[in-house]
Amino acid sequence: MAQDNDLIRRACKEFEQDLVLYYYGERGREESKELENHLEGCGSCRQFLADLRRLLPLTVKPDDPPQPFWENYSKEMQERLAAIAQRGRWWRDLASLFRPWPVPALATALVLILALTLTFGKRIWRSQDLPPDEEAVLEILPMAENLDFFKAMDLLDSMDLLEDTGGPGNGSV
């Protein structure tokens, strides 16, 4: 590390972040002027900025896929979107099968099942080995959707977890 420090001088501590922002054009006219004045008299900061100009472009490796790649990309997307839409239709059709069934009876059965589940726990629920009736199916469908949804939200929230800025976050991504 000592060797690194010998080879690569740090910029002035109070100017280093500004130099990074200056390099990226994120400083206003006044701030830039102030920085430029400092640069005139500071070799370390000049070296720092010169290094950024020399080195940072190396981190970008261009990739220019040929036209067939993009055509294929669009085609694949259309197919995958169509598949999702088709799946959505299938679920809707399935759900519509149960629509004509008497709603109060379904609701009563559902309440009973929930009460049983809460009372006797998962093991009893499983050991009874109930046939997959319509109530269960109707209950599972939205649950499955929610699971998928929450999985996605977990992913979205992973960024929030990484961030330590606090703040309530309104949850609407």
């Binding site: 080879l7 690569i8 280093e16 972040q17 990074v20 994120e26 190396l58």
Partner: peptide, 17 residues
């Protein structure tokens, strides 16, 4: 800005070698 600064400072150090 802090993340960017730290990333750039680290990369500058590593790439300059």
């Amino acid at each position: 800005k802090v993340h960017l600064h730290r990333a750039v400072a680290t990369l500058r150090q590593k790439l300059a070698e």
